[in-house]
Amino acid sequence: MDDEVIVCRCEEVTAGEVRAAIRAGTRTIAAIKKRTRAGMGLCGGRTCARLMARLLAEETGLPAAAVAPPRARPPVRPVPAAALAEED
């Protein structure tokens, strides 16, 4: 994957930016997310999390099995905040 290729299309984060974050020491998808915003878009990382996992494995030499899926937190589908407040 070339550095200019977009990894997270929701937040427009490139492979180069994710690699830079990994080189700076991030070792989990959650950490990459906090540093780059990749995975924080509307799709909730459904598209890009697997690409981040691949970059993480490539850059660190970790086996794919060792890269845990990103932590999941509610809401896992887009829900308006107002609806959450009125949950019954």
């Binding site: 509610p74 809401p75 589908r77 829900v79 609806a83 959450l84 009125e86 949950e87 019954d88």
Partner: peptide, 16 residues
């Protein structure tokens, strides 16, 4: 927790 619904149920709402 679910979100959704239709006009018949008063539109989309969150419910448990």
């Amino acid at each position: 927790a679910v979100y959704g619904g239709d006009a018949a149920t008063g539109g989309s709402r969150a419910a448990r």
